[in-house]
Deep mutational scan, measured.
Amino acid sequence: MAEQVALSRTQVCGILREELFQGDAFHQSDTHIFIIMGASGDLAKKKIYPTIWWLFRDGLLPENTFIVGYARSRLTVADIRKQSEPFFKATPEEKLKLEDFFARNSYVAGQYDDAASYQRLNSHMNALHLGSQANRLFYLALPPTVYEAVTKNIHESCMSQIGWNRIIVEKPFGRDLQSSDRLSNHISSLFREDQIYRIDHYLGKEMVQNLMVLRFANRIFGPIWNRDNIACVILTFKEPFGTEGRGGYFDEFGIIRDVMQNHLLQMLCLVAMEKPASTNSDDVRDEKVKVLKCISEVQANNVVLGQYVGNPDGEGEATKGYLDDPTVPRGSTTATFAAVVLYVENERWDGVPFILRCGKALNERKAEVRLQFHDVAGDIFHQQCKRNELVIRVQPNEAVYTKMMTKKPGMFFNPEESELDLTYGNRYKNVKLPDAYERLILDVFCGSQMHFVRSDELREAWRIFTPLLHQIELEKPKPIPYIYGSRGPTEADELMKRVGFQYEGTYKWVNP
């Protein structure tokens, strides 16, 4: 592979701008107003304001973009700056750019259920340069409990009458099928589907988006991507930290609602779906819905739930269990780990287990898709061969690698495990991989909904998990304890083995 010439960040961002501006969906010269509902909250200060700053800094926003914060707290732009700027990672050389960014910011205080507050917000936006005809993007960085009041008031008082209007809704989209349907029906009564952007930030990850290209742009994968060759698929999300004093919020939802029903299920769809007619948003989402419709409700015998306990040999936070978090209700049975087996009941995947695993306070930070292939028929190497695996590593250190057998150097035919490896950090030294939120917010500006969740996708996802969630809430089974920093409950490994996964433990990928 030829040595790549190092590029400056300015040059890299210039390439990104060229890609972005050559499309006809990006209205570079139009006025846009980006409204952050819930501007005083954690999500706004840690993710949304920093993301908008990065896009502005790199010249990736339309030229005439204004940012308006809205929340109940009586704040000023200076207050917003004070709480969000520490997350910007701005350099001293960017000081003038930073001043320009905050000059485009404003803030309006108001209630979430008060019509007069929204009329005041609308008047404020109209007073901005060309504000009355601007395109408006409303980001709901809010708890779902206020979605209905907020969307109703936005629709009645704050819509642009000339430009387009788009609304970005953060997960969780309800707690179960019934609450999700209620919320979807409410929002759909106010906005068209092409105006609604239900954001799952995992769909903005580079390697998640790469799944489609790997599958449908490489001839070698087509013939082997089926039940005849693939023994099982494992989708993993692991965090090495616990709730760390923020367990009160987590306890309301648990690990299945927080990660599995959305992030992991979306990745499953991209692995299992048929080739779409095109890369058009609805063509892709149509195929994802077909996959979900082929999955039956989760069966309790295919589920393992766990909850982390303190590690007596650990240090600091590792010595504390979930129930030691003062914000967690006493005696909570909320799971911090889950392993679930699903089956896609169609011709391509009949009988292939899709194993979804996620948890907190585990032994490493990792998100990946792992396809394990069947054993080689007619073994001539005296059971020395391990199964081939194709691994798409989402985070950290984005990579695609194939675990395969090669001859060990020497005189004899002794096979050993090795890999074919594409590590993004080595291959793409001159490429700026956008943060997931950067990519998705740019998608909203461009009107691309491919990486957002459609209402029928959402409904099918909740259909699969709601009976299990209701059973857990009714019966309150005690989750299996696992030690902070471990791989999780051993019962999860036993479940995976029972459905056909072979864990060798003899080879570990190392970032080159």
Rank of each mutant, 00 (worst) to 15 (best):
I15S: 04
I168Y: 00
A90M: 05
E19T: 05
M125H: 00
D79Q: 11
R198M: 02
R192G: 11
Q209E: 15
L211C: 09
G14T: 07
E99S: 11
R182E: 14
Y107N: 02
M37A: 07
R120W: 11
A44Y: 02
Y70K: 00
S188R: 14
C13K: 07
F216M: 04
L214W: 08
S123Q: 10
V68T: 04
I35E: 00
L203P: 14
P92T: 10
I67P: 00
V12K: 10
C13D: 04
F34Y: 08
R104Q: 07
Y249A: 14
V213A: 10
A217F: 00
V169W: 06
P172A: 09
I33A: 05
L61I: 07
S117M: 10
A149E: 08
T243M: 14
G204R: 15
F56W: 09
R182S: 03
P143W: 05
N153D: 03
S188P: 02
P62H: 11
N218P: 01
R9A: 06
M159P: 05
R215D: 01
I52V: 05
F253Q: 14
L214S: 12
N64L: 04
N64T: 09
D24I: 08
A25T: 10
D113P: 03
T145S: 07
F216C: 03
L121G: 00
K97G: 03
I80L: 12
R17N: 09
D181M: 05
K89E: 13
W53G: 00
I168W: 01
Y147W: 06
K89V: 07
T243Y: 09
L121R: 00
R17Q: 08
C232T: 09
L20D: 04
A6Q: 09
A149G: 14
A109L: 05
E3A: 03
Q28M: 11
P240E: 15
M207W: 15
H32M: 15
Q133V: 08
C13Q: 08
D30V: 04
E244M: 10
D200V: 13
T51Q: 06
V5S: 12
R57D: 01
A149D: 12
A115Q: 13
I15E: 08
G174V: 08
I199D: 00
K238T: 15
G14V: 03
N165P: 00
F138H: 00
I162L: 10
M159T: 12
M125Y: 00
V5N: 09
K45V: 08
L61H: 00
A127Y: 05
R227H: 08
N135A: 06
H27G: 11
H32W: 03
P240T: 15
Y147F: 14
L75D: 05
V169A: 07
C232D: 02
I162M: 10
E170H: 12
F26A: 05
S73K: 05
V213H: 05
D42C: 10
M212L: 06
M212G: 02
A44V: 04
P86M: 07
P92S: 12
N153W: 07
I199E: 00
A127T: 06
Q178S: 13
A217Y: 02
A115N: 11
E156N: 07
Q195S: 06
L128F: 08
F250D: 06
I162T: 13
P92C: 06
G131N: 09
Y197W: 12
L61T: 03
S8A: 04
K47P: 00
N135R: 03
A103G: 09
P86I: 09
G174K: 02
Y107F: 11
I67A: 01
T151R: 00
V150P: 01
A115T: 08
Y49S: 00
A149P: 07
V150S: 09
P144R: 13
N165T: 11
S160M: 03
N229E: 04
L211K: 01
K89A: 13
T76A: 05
I80T: 02
I35H: 01
V169Q: 13
T51Y: 12
T91K: 14
S189G: 12
K152N: 13
L55T: 05
A6G: 04
R219S: 08
S73I: 03
G163E: 00
K45W: 11
W54Y: 13
K46E: 13
L137Y: 03
F253N: 15
V150K: 00
H32G: 03
S157T: 05
I187N: 09
N64V: 02
Y197V: 00
R257Q: 15
G110E: 01
Y49P: 00
P62R: 03
E3D: 10
V5Q: 13
S132D: 07
R72G: 12
S160K: 04
A127D: 09
G204A: 14
Q133E: 05
T65N: 02
A116Q: 10
D181Y: 05
D200C: 12
P92M: 08
V108H: 05
S40L: 05
P86R: 06
K46T: 10
Q195T: 12
V108D: 01
S84A: 12
F253V: 14
Y112T: 04
V68L: 03
L177A: 06
T10D: 08
W225G: 00
F56Y: 07
D113W: 08
A103L: 07
E156R: 07
H155E: 03
K171S: 11
K89G: 07
R120V: 13
K82R: 11
R74S: 09
R136F: 05
N135S: 05
Y139F: 09
M159H: 11
K45I: 09
D42S: 11
E239C: 10
A109Y: 10
E148F: 13
L183I: 09
G247V: 09
P50M: 01
R215T: 01
Y147I: 13
Q161T: 09
G248C: 11
S188N: 06
I187K: 02
N153P: 00
D200M: 11
V150Y: 00
S73Q: 08
L142F: 12
F138A: 01
I230Q: 00
E252F: 03
I36T: 02
W225D: 00
Q11I: 07
L98H: 02
A78N: 12
S184L: 10
P223Q: 15
A231K: 09
D24N: 11
V77L: 07
A90Q: 03
I67R: 00
T145W: 11
K152F: 08
R57A: 03
L96V: 08
N165F: 03
Q22H: 03
A231W: 01
P240A: 12
D176L: 03
A149S: 13
A71R: 00
N122W: 04
I67F: 08
R72D: 11
I67D: 01
I33R: 01
T10H: 07
S29W: 10
R227C: 12
K82Q: 10
F241L: 13
F237M: 04
L140C: 06
S117I: 01
L55S: 08
F250L: 12
F250C: 04
D251Q: 06
R74Y: 11
R136G: 00
E19C: 13
P62G: 05
F237G: 02
A90I: 09
R246D: 13
I230Y: 01
N210K: 14
N64K: 09
V233G: 02
C13E: 06
E18T: 05
Y147H: 14
E206R: 04
E206K: 04
G59V: 01
E252Y: 05
L60K: 02
M207L: 13
I80C: 03
P143K: 06
V68R: 01
Q22S: 11
F241Q: 13
E193D: 04
Y197D: 00
S189I: 08
